[in-house]
Design a binder for these strands. Structure first.
Lengths: 140, 140
DNA sequence: ACTTATATGAGAATAATTCTTATTTAAGAA
DNA sequence: TTCTTAAATAAGAATTATTCTCATATAAGT
């Protein structure tokens, strides 16, 4: 993801391009494993020590509203964020904080067909995310 | 769910039976829509005004550890809890706080077969929860 | 360069949850 | 039944995550 591409994501949504917004998006793309706001703040402060905590939370909210990033739900108190907007699922390791992305077009088609057939009365499905919970095997 | 059944859930796990634990489990079973800790506290205080906030959080943690209840992940800051331990999924209304349970054995079998065939290398799946996101249609 | 609506920084405020410690209590033993 | 003790609770302080307020700064169109 180049600086120019990040800039375009903002302008395409009619958002002003600010150094803070650029830095926050760049942080999310570079920090793997679905960073928390705190992870993002720590990362940005290395290059940009004056960024305000409140600004990061504000910008994250704006980015979610504008569908440039997504929230990732967890059983912990701190929200985590995801810069990958293509349809995908999440593999949660029960023993660590690791959340891996899981892309599977075959599965997505299967689910789409399944819920076309068996529609939920009175409900319009917009997105289905699998939370795949378990543990990674130890490596020997 | 009778008082006796709730009591047995605790003793079966080797947990001491206390009025607080009984009240919290009863609250979760009676309060529909996956209550927050605050919902539970408000409910219990009607009958039992002296219960301490910290106790409720402590007990909720114990109940989750002992697999008597589950946490429900959301995009909001407050955690929500679920007393239904049978395998099921969640329908999230994007416009309200409503989270509906979705039971579907056919779907569960489909998923189980799918992930037997296509296993995730190095990962042992323990549970798969669908987060079905969308909106309920307005009633006329 | 000028203007103005919007974004940011700083820090206070709030909300959700956890921690600490003295006291109480459940449940097994005597 | 009473005794014992490890575990649970109440009360409130402390911590953590997030939001809010408002004065100042700035992006982007004129």
């Amino acid at each position: 993801m180049t600086t120019e591409e990040i800039r375009n994501k903002l302008t395409d949504r009619g958002l002003k391009v600010t150094p803070q917004r650029m830095a926050i998006l760049e942080a999310i793309y570079n920090l793997k494993n679905h960073p928390t706001a705190e992870n993002i703040i720590d990362y940005i402060k290395k290059m940009y020590p004056n960024i305000a905590t409140g600004t990061v939370y504000k910008v994250l909210g704006v980015l979610v509203e504008n569908r440039l990033i997504k929230k990732v739900t967890t059983e912990k108190d701190a929200m985590r964020y995801d810069g990958v907007m293509e349809s995908h699922h999440h593999i949660y390791c029960q023993e660590t904080e690791l959340i891996k992305d899981y892309f599977d077009e075959e599965l997505d088609e299967l689910l789409q067909k399944y819920f076309e057939k068996k529609s939920l009365p009175g409900f319009k499905i917009e997105d289905i995310i699998l939370q795949i919970k378990g543990t990674f095997q130890k490596q020997y």
